[in-house]
Design a protein around this nucleic acid. Structure first.
Lengths: 165, 165
DNA sequence: AATGAAATCGACCAGCA
DNA sequence: TGCTGGTCGATTTCATT
């Protein structure tokens, strides 16, 4: 797992494709090498399926932080603050919620140092009033393909318009 | 977007592959039809890239609920409760956290009725003491490929062992 | 729009540097 | 380990229903 592997995986994420040819163009790494590397990554379990889902532990992103953020009230602020939070490095999900806290933010990181920077980044966003973070001790479930959260039968019913209420 | 589409997308999620042949075997839908359908789904924006990421809105999963769950204290309980929460239909992520609340659970649903059932399901899990849910008004970011949350340069540094502290 | 068969393209494996 | 060329197999298209 060296820099070349990361370059490839990063390109996979960016381009949203697993095509060796396209990845080769993007990374300037020869087509067959891309193949070879992806194969190895599969063997090592870093990449878990044909759709190139990446094992977070395997790439060192083994710290997950869930943060609740409250912001000054203003419609414009909320949009801006949300975007700013989403832009913080390592942030994976940002939800604007109803209730006492305004945003829920989930981030994946690889070191304690990065966590500190993360919190600092949150608090330096203009309009942010308060943040409250929880560390994740154990990720029990994190399903990249939400359709897997349902029985096939339930899914079938999902899109019948009459299931909407 | 009929039942056949859902059958295919469900098989994609389950098998973790986009291979028309494998999907055909699984679903008993002819190979070329699988192709044809996936192509249409791409055109309509339901499927967003080669890696077959699915647009949640497009499949009708436009409600997101974030729930904090507290459970009776006991090591065994925590494992069991976590698993039970993960098994609830629609649940996408389950985190065991340190702090005042024990679990944070995120679910994607398609109707108010399903939300009510979700909460009931949570509260009927043995060992669960309290639940507190937030509705998501707007999903500002939800990145299926966490490597995209980082600059390529940062990523390169990620796996240098000396970046661990 | 769905299917089966035929054509095309890209993946994969040998061997070589 | 990284690269090149050839084979094979899968994908995609086309004509038909």
């Amino acid at each position: 797992m060296d820099e070349k592997d990361v370059t490839i995986l990063s390109a996979v994420a960016r381009l949203g494709t697993g095509s060796a040819e396209k990845l080769s163009e993007e990374t300037d790494i020869p087509t067959s090498t891309v193949h070879y590397r992806l194969e190895k990554l599969r063997e090592r379990g870093v990449v878990t399926n044909d759709l190139l889902d990446v094992d977070l532990e395997a790439v060192g992103l083994n710290i997950t932080v869930i943060t609740e953020v409250t912001a000054e009230y203003s419609e414009q602020y909320h949009d801006d603050v949300g975007e700013a939070l989403a832009d913080v490095e390592g942030v994976n999900q940002v939800y604007f919620t109803m209730g006492d806290t305004d945003f829920v933010v989930i981030a994946h990181l690889s070191s304690r140092g990065m966590v500190e920077r993360l919190i600092e980044d949150y608090e330096s966003v203009d309009g942010v009033e308060q943040t409250s973070s929880k560390f994740v001790i154990k990720t029990i479930k994190d399903e990249p393909r939400p359709l897997n959260d349902f029985d096939p039968e339930t899914l079938a019913a999902l899109l019948q318009p009459d299931a909407t209420e």
